[in-house]
């Protein structure tokens, strides 16, 4: 009984806050998605159109291309690279070598720089570094890798890798520093015990470090998927979804429909579909992938 009161106290504020902030707007958004509400008609309200917005979305010829970009490039590629690079950096910073070289602390602060940079600035800087006369092209030419400057954000072969690189620069530090914190919670005793058993460095990593990292990795993976999938800032600012519609993703489509075409009803429908996709992913992920790590202990 005392436990129940305690649990309620612990959870209630969060639940109320989240319901207040997400509950009504999401309900409202669902309603809007069945109307033809226009940004210009917010005062009057929209007319009920039933499932017309959803039908239009699923029949639009561009959808396959947009989904491919969203799933493969914006989400899968960027999330996997982000986790791998983040893990790599966290492990590197946690090594004895870093301490001996006196680089561990410096690097931790260095990681704060990209993280604290607002996305708009990150995009602006990288657009300039990736320019025809920019630092990247200059370096590549000097190193003899290419003899003509690459139009990184205009060439269809390089535009997605470039976009992913910009996202990584801005977001890898979050992963790296969070994993580093996990590494720091590994109790020394565990390593000592492993050493007594004569474990190799690899075995210590595999059987001591990794189990401690997994929960954080799983959470970071899940959240990174949500954030990437729903993110429109990098694509919008770096390429404007171009050339043509080559880098268009669901989130930029939402922005285009809502704020360029004024079609709030239609963009709400896209938003609902996105939420359903991510919701389904989240549930499956928690059930299938993270169950052992998170839920079993729950």
């Amino acid at each position: 009984m005392r436990d129940r009161l305690f649990i309620t106290t612990m959870l209630l504020p969060t639940v109320v806050l989240l319901l207040l902030f997400y509950g009504y707007p999401i309900f409202d958004n669902l309603k809007i998605s069945f109307t033809d509400l226009s940004l210009l008609g917010m005062k009057r309200g929209g007319n009920w159109v039933g499932l017309a917005n959803y039908r239009e979305l699923f029949r639009s010829g561009d959808l396959g291309h947009i989904l491919f970009n969203t799933f493969i490039w914006l989400t899968a590629t960027s999330v996997i690279l982000r986790l791998l690079i983040g893990l790599g950096i966290a492990l590197l910073l946690n090594t004895r070598a870093m301490k001996l070289l006196r680089l561990a602390a410096v690097s931790r602060f260095a990681l704060l720089i990209p993280w604290a940079t607002p996305p708009i600035v990150a995009v602006v800087i990288w657009r300039f570094l990736l320019e025809r006369n920019g630092a990247v092209n200059e370096a590549l030419i000097k190193l003899g890798v290419v003899d003509h400057p690459i139009a990184f954000l205009a060439d269809m072969r390089t535009v997605w890798p470039s976009l992913v690189a910009i996202m990584l620069w801005n977001t890898v530090p979050l992963i790296a520093l969070s994993l580093l914190s996990s590494l720091q919670t590994v109790p020394d005793e565990y390593y000592e015990a492993a050493e007594l058993d004569g474990a190799t460095n690899w075995q210590k990593f595999r059987f001591v470090t990794l189990p401690f990292l997994m929960p954080a990795m799983l959470v970071l993976g899940l959240m990174s998927v949500f954030w990437s999938f729903n993110n429109f800032v990098y694509v919008w600012l770096a390429t404007g979804a171009g050339p043509g519609t080559y880098t268009n993703v669901l989130a930029t489509e939402v922005y285009l429909k809502a704020f360029i075409d004024f079609r709030l009803g239609y963009s709400s429908a896209i938003g609902m579909v996105m939420a359903v996709i991510m919701g389904a992913f989240g549930i499956l992920y928690l059930r299938l992938v993270a169950r052992q790590q998170l839920e079993e202990t729950l």
Partner: peptide, 15 residues
């Protein structure tokens, strides 16, 4: 708790 995280924030701006 994840409820709100699955939405693209830009569609939630107006509501």
């Amino acid at each position: 708790i994840l409820f709100g995280q699955v939405f693209p924030w830009i569609v939630l701006i107006n509501p």
